[in-house]
Design a protein around this nucleic acid. Structure first.
Length: 981
RNA sequence: GCCGGAGUGUCGAAAUUGGUAACCGAACACGACUCAAAAUCGUGCGCCGCAAGGCUUGAGAGUUCGAGUCUCUCCUCCGGCACCA
């Protein structure tokens, strides 16, 4: 065979590998020992079997995890690397509805397509871990059994029926409740927030684009909030990208604050508020309550305006419901509220504060009631609209960034200075005097220190004359309270903490003294219109003063505290802990931690999901099914369409309802939260996985899948896994130790691959034309694994050429004729160094999912091999081993041509030999004043002195050094030598 | 608005973490082979310049002998969160 016939080679080896079960997971023996080495669980997020099949984007993640799994296997790990399908859930059901077939049948058919497509890529899955295609649907029905055992586990733990009920309702990990949900009449179901979109005409479902509205509905919830803190702290130990961790952190939304209690005047009600910005609590002048707060009607009891307020509250709620929670709030935001007529007694002794209903208050965050002040943007805006009195306790403080960092490092103290800021208005025009400091480039107003025993006004008047020469300024007014600034005085080289007193002056006329030349150089003056002034000012503190001149009201969010007197003069940002302790000690407040995350709705009014193994009795009490009644299998139904009433199709199944069985089904994320445990022990008929087996496999070591699941699947699985651990059913705190997210594959037009754009590329075609190996190498070579890139039919040729080259070099080794033979046992030292360096790099790159650079370094190596007349066969074989995970077929073929009887894919991974990586000579750069002027090859052990002398006489160097004095020589071993002249 | 990430040739992208910017690949140009084309092989390929040389990592400053990399300000793009008190 002389041609590289990928079709033949790939077909051949795929069937050999399958026959020899090359990828079979090592047997786990019940004694607790595995037959193979240390375990390694490599998992892909399973695809949901859509009707359109795979496009070239899907396999990217699978190829990455496959390469990783192959290397781990060759390194001697007992690798578990299964594949399956995410069959339950909305997408599959929606597809079935559209094609008017049963979901089960649709799933089975689609899986067949997927299997066929996956099989030709040469992925090293252990297919024995799932039932053969055709029975896949059944295995998912079996999975229903397993989900049942979550509740069965609770059952086993408790001895009596009563206790069982207690566990469910007292700990209430799963609880029944009523909640407002996104109701979609078109799909006849409830949708999650991420399943809906906002369209011009209102909310619509992501699938199908049907309108969505809010509706109160009976639900099952899982109390994920009880695990909020563990979900947060658990992130620290995970080898995930910071990016995904960050998303989960934001989603959990932990915030630490204080709870204040306040009695409501003329009632026996006490209201509580949650506050995280309690440093400014002495500024609080009013309360707001959420319009849908359960306390509101009681609060209004006995007031004449009760109906009016409730009507307004209802209006606000209706409006709020017309847009999705958390989506485009900015667009829909409107300051809206009404005074309740009640007052609460300020716990800090600041009198009776009015309680308002406000649209911005949320009933389900904190306590649903907020204590409001001038020092919060929203509170401020609300108060301004309704003329609620405000009180300021913070004076603004600005930290000018310029150079400050540097000065802080020097740990020099801040020198405090009182100064007047004189805003000077023109005598006849609407213009203001701008000052530019020549030495710093700062632009603003006239500023001068206030001397002792001098008041701000007279100081200002004096400074104006001194700095500008204008003889007749007149004091107009004070521009509010002090403004503070910290900055680095570059001229005097010291930290400054300035306290500015802003004052407004106007000139009576243009009479002016002749100011000295020096003063003029220091301050460049210009008359500017208000619009010009806006862009003229450089510092934030001066901008605050300018805002006051223009009478623009803005809330002060950070600065220097005035009250309480115990903290007067302190910076808000530094007193947080102290002031919290102080408030708690005084008995004004108690500490509280809040989370943004809400409990997860665990119910769908659909057919195609696991049924919930619960029974409602005549008295409305909920019971778990007895063990003998399990598994609870999804019944065959005539119509699996949503009923449209909001109830699940199961509500139409007479036998089901008669038994009192729960008619809601589990959401799509139920199965995906723990399927990976089932794959540890897939044939077990009794439990989802044997305890000893779980103790061996523990959890997934390497998980590969889309970043879009960051707040869905990846969070729910972690939650679920922690529950299972608490019940002693799993052994680790976290399900997925390491995670990599493949980037998306766009079409050649840089748009998402979709039928709609006609830019879908089918992997089958690519594999047929170029081969699976080329396809695999190309997908990894394109760019970083996690980057989203457009598919290119042009660029793939490079990867094919690379493999052709590998093929060609192999021909040379195989050809034993004297003329062609490249086979030689003598070692080519240069090549050997490169080979071992490449082995090291490829090993590390695979470990870190840097596949693109791994391929690149192998290309360099092959280019080098190709140039050699003589190649050591052993060296070439080592290279074949590291290429094998990327291109398993071609390397296996060559391996056998070279005379081996074993399978390359089960060979052991080569280890780079440190002794064979040491270079003796290196090329270093010769720089003069940091510019490269020459290159020079030196022995690695050569002394600096000798190198300097050797390099100096190079003509290219001498040219630049002649007639100049060498001030300094910097030598970095093995890198460069730099002459500073 | 807040929190992340990024910005480098014509394009996909590298850069041992402060040490020769642009490895590898694609595209392109020229040459060889060929009747010809494709494939293949060879050469070139950041920008300006005949050259010597100069310039170049979104813009501007700073630290340093030396900055794509560190610091600051600003701009643009992507992702996440968003009436969360």
């Amino acid at each position: 065979m002389n041609e590289y016939d990928h079709l033949k080679i790939e077909k051949k080896w795929q069937s050999v590998w399958a026959k020899k079960k090359a990828y079979k997971t090592g047997q786990f023996v019940k004694s607790g020992k595995a037959s193979a080495g240390k375990k390694y669980y490599v998992l892909d997020m399973f695809p949901y079997p859509s009707g359109t099949g795979l496009h070239v984007g899907h396999p990217k993640g699978y190829i990455g995890s496959d390469i990783f799994a192959r290397m781990k296997r060759m390194q001697g790990f007992n690798v578990l690397h299964p594949m399956g399908y995410d069959a339950f859930g909305l997408p599959a059901e929606q597809y079935a509805l559209e094609h008017n077939i049963s979901p089960k049948k649709a799933v089975e058919e689609n899986i067949k397509t997927f299997e066929k497509q996956l099989s030709i890529i040469g992925l090293s899955y252990d297919w024995d871990r799932i039932e053969k295609s055709g029975n896949i649907g059944n295995s998912y029905v079996n999975a229903v059994t397993d989900n049942t055992e979550i509740f069965s586990a609770l059952e086993w733990k408790s001895k009596t029926e009563k206790e069982k009920q207690d566990i469910l309702m007292k700990y209430r990990l799963a609880y029944e409740g009523y909640s407002e949900v996104n109701w979609c009449p078109g799909l006849g179901t409830v949708l999650a927030n991420d399943e809906i979109l906002e369209a011009p005409k209102g909310l619509v479902s992501e699938r199908g684009g049907f309108p969505v509205e809010k509706k109160i509905m009976r639900q099952w919830f899982l109390r994920i909030t009880a695990y909020a803190d563990r979900l947060l702290t658990g992130l620290d130990g995970l080898n995930w990208s910071e990016h995904i961790k960050e998303i989960q952190k934001n989603w959990i939304g932990k915030s630490e604050g204080l709870i204040f209690s306040a009695k409501v005047k003329d009632t026996d009600i006490t209201i509580k508020t949650f506050s995280t910005h309690f440093e400014a609590c002495y500024a609080d002048t009013f309360f707001v309550i959420a319009p849908d707060h359960e306390l509101l009607p009681k609060l209004l009891e006995g007031l004449p305006q009760k109906d009016e307020v409730l009507k307004k509250a209802k209006e606000i709620v209706t409006r709020r419901n017309s847009f999705p929670e958390g989506k485009n709030v900015e667009e829909h935001k409107e300051i809206d509220g009404i005074f309740t007529g009640r007052y609460a007694i300020d716990p800090l002794g600041n009198g009776n504060l009015p309680i308002w209903v406000a649209g911005f208050a949320l009933a389900n965050y904190g306590t649903g009631i907020v204590k409001c002040s001038a020092h919060d943007e929203r509170d401020f805006a609300f108060a301004k609209k309704y003329n609620i009195p405000l009180k300021e306790v913070i004076e603004p403080l600005v930290i000018r960034p310029n150079g400050l960092e540097d000065s802080v490092k020097l740990e020099t103290p801040f020198k405090e200075r009182k100064a007047v800021v004189a805003v000077i208005k023109h005598w006849s025009q609407d213009k203001y005097l701008g000052v530019e400091w020549g030495n710093t480039g700062w632009r603003g107003f006239v500023i001068g220190g206030i001397e002792e025993e001098e008041d701000a006004v007279s100081s200002g008047l004096r400074e104006i004359v001194e700095e500008t020469g204008y003889k007749n300024p007149k004091f107009i007014k004070s521009l509010g309270g002090m403004v503070h600034a910290k900055f680095y005085q570059t001229i005097k080289k010291e930290n400054r903490f300035a306290h500015f007193e802003p004052l407004l002056f106007q000139l009576k006329n243009d009479e002016r003294l002749d100011i000295s030349g020096e003063e003029e150089k220091l301050h460049k003056l210009s008359w500017l219109s208000p619009a010009e002034f806006e862009s003229f000012i450089t510092n934030q503190d001066m901008k605050i003063i300018w805002d006051r001149v223009m009478e623009r009201e803005k809330p002060i969010l950070n600065g220097i505290l005035n009250e309480p007197s115990e903290f007067k003069g302190r910076e808000v940002s530094t007193v947080r802990e102290e002031i919290a302790n102080w408030l708690v000690e005084k008995g004004f407040a108690v500490r509280q931690v809040n989370y943004k995350m809400r409990d997860a709705v665990f119910a769908r009014q659909r057919y195609w999901g696991e049924p919930i193994p619960l029974r409602h009795d005549k008295n409305g009490i909920i019971h778990e099914l007895l063990e003998k009644d399990l598994p609870l299998i999804l019944p065959e139904v005539k119509s699996y369409r949503p009923t449209g009433t909001g109830e699940s199709p199961l509500a139409n199944v007479h036998a089901w309802v008669k038994k009192g069985l729960e008619t809601n089904t589990m959401p799509g994320w139920a199965g995906s939260s723990w399927y990976f445990l089932r794959y540890m022990d897939p044939k077990n008929k009794k439990v989802f996985a044997d305890k000893k087996t779980i103790e061996y496999w523990k959890n997934v070591d390497m998980y590969v899948g889309g970043a879009e699941h960051a707040t869905g699947h990846l969070l729910y699985s972690r939650f679920w896994h922690k529950i299972l651990k608490d019940y002693g059913l799993t052994v680790t705190e976290e399900p997925f130790q390491a995670l990599h997210n493949p980037g998306m594959m766009f079409g050649a037009d840089n748009r998402k691959m979709s039928k709609r754009w006609g830019n879908v590329v089918n992997p089958d075609d690519v594999v047929k034309t170029y081969g699976a190996d080329t396809f695999r190498v190309y997908e990894m070579f394109m760019g970083p694994f996690n980057a989203s890139l457009p598919w290119s039919m042009d660029n793939i040729i490079g990867s094919r050429r690379f493999l052709e080259k590998v093929w060609k070099v192999s021909r040379g080794i195989l050809d034993t004729s004297p003329k062609m033979s490249r086979r030689l046992l003598d070692t080519n030292q240069k090549l050997e160094i490169l080979l071992h360096k490449t082995i090291k790099k490829v090993t590390e790159d695979i470990e870190n999912f840097n596949f693109n650079t791994a391929v690149s370094s192998m290309m360099i190596l092959v280019n080098e091999f190709e140039k050699q007349k003589k190649i050591n066969k052993k060296d070439w074989e080592m290279f074949l081993k590291i290429l094998s995970p990327f291109a398993p077929h071609i390397t296996e073929e060559i391996w056998h041509e070279l005379g081996h009887k074993t399978l390359l894919v089960t060979e052991s991974w080569p280890k780079p030999d440190k002794n064979k990586m040491k270079e003796k000579e290196v090329k270093i750069a010769v720089q003069i004043n940091s510019k490269v002027r020459a290159e020079c090859t030196v022995a690695l052990n050569m002394k600096e002195e000798n190198i300097v002398n050797m390099v100096k006489i190079l003509p290219a160097v001498e040219k630049w050094l002649s007639g100049k004095e060498i001030k300094k020589v910097i030598y970095i071993s093995g890198k460069l030598i730099n002459f500073v002249v």
